[in-house]
């Protein structure tokens, strides 16, 4: 009895310690966003909530002038980030599910060549191709537009690969049964493949939304006006380098706000997300 109890205890302790380590910085941020800049500036941030929360959040949200600088309002940056993250997630899923459908279900010349072409782009992260991509986007006049923010990030080998692997697990007989039932490729896609993929789509949506939301380097390059600032780049721009002091209370409030949409997506889609990762519903 005793050894089993001990063995049960160890993983729990490890997990609790892990959770504390992960949660502590977030807690500090939450607390920090409720104090005034003076308290934080003195370096003695208490571990309990202060009374400035409402004021700080209102200020960050509306972008009124801070004590030292003028920022893009959080509501603008949130909207930009939301548009970008949604376009990337939806666009990536739409394009990759269609290309995976083609690669997995159709026999056409150079099929495997196309598959490998898609596949090898996995080896090229955004950073590697960022200069040519920037050139193309600039030539197309897409600097400081939503299209410029989202389109270059939409093509996705990873999602294509994931969908293809899932499609390969759909039994051939199902396709044949549909053929005999009279469903053409488009009908089969809409009536059978899409519904069967919904948990995978949900899981990918969560991952891709967060991926899009957290984009840093690309938005930094492709936006130059404050109106097009995304929240992740916006936060880093708030933190001055060098000697200048920072409005930590506003930065922390902004950070908390920046966390909310990804958290909401994860919480809302958690059930599907987990389902998509663990089972394939056969």
């Amino acid at each position: 009895m005793k050894p089993t109890r001990f063995i049960d205890l160890v993983p729990h302790i490890v997990l609790i310690v892990g959770v504390l380590i992960f949660a502590y910085p977030i807690y500090v941020t939450l607390i920090g966003s409720t104090w005034d800049s003076g308290t934080i500036g003195r370096g003695g941030l208490p571990l309990w909530p202060g009374g400035q929360g409402m004021v700080n959040y209102a200020q960050a949200w509306a972008g009124e002038a801070g004590e030292r600088a003028l920022y893009t309002p959080v509501r603008t940056m949130m909207l930009n980030s939301l548009v970008m993250a949604l376009s990337i997630a939806v666009g990536k899923i739409a394009i990759s599910i269609l290309s995976a459908y083609a690669v997995a279900f159709f026999r056409f010349p150079l099929r495997m060549a196309f598959f490998w072409l898609i596949f090898i782009t996995l080896m090229l992260p955004v950073e590697v191709r960022i200069i040519p991509t920037y050139k193309v986007v600039a030539d197309l006049g897409l600097i400081n537009t939503y299209a410029g923010l989202a389109i270059p990030l939409i093509a996705s080998a990873t999602a294509t690969l994931l969908f293809r692997q899932f499609f390969l697990t759909i039994p051939d007989e199902l396709l044949e049964a549909a053929k005999i039932d009279g469903a053409g490729p488009v009908r089969f896609f809409i009536d059978v493949v899409l519904p069967l993929s919904r948990t995978n789509i949900a899981a990918l949506f969560v991952i891709l939304f967060i991926y899009g939301w957290n984009q840093y380097l690309w938005p930094l390059l492709v936006t130059s006006s404050g109106d097009m600032e995304t929240i992740v780049t916006g936060i880093t721009k708030m933190i001055g380098t060098g000697e200048s002091a920072n409005d930590w209370h506003i930065i922390m409030a902004t950070t908390v706000l920046a966390m909310l949409p990804p958290v909401a997506v994860v919480v809302l889609m958690q059930r599907w997300f987990v389902k998509g990762l663990v089972d394939s519903e056969k």
Partner: peptide, 9 residues
């Protein structure tokens, strides 16, 4: 079909 090939959804 041998494995029934029913639409699972």
């Amino acid at each position: 079909f041998q494995n029934y090939a029913l639409y699972p959804h």
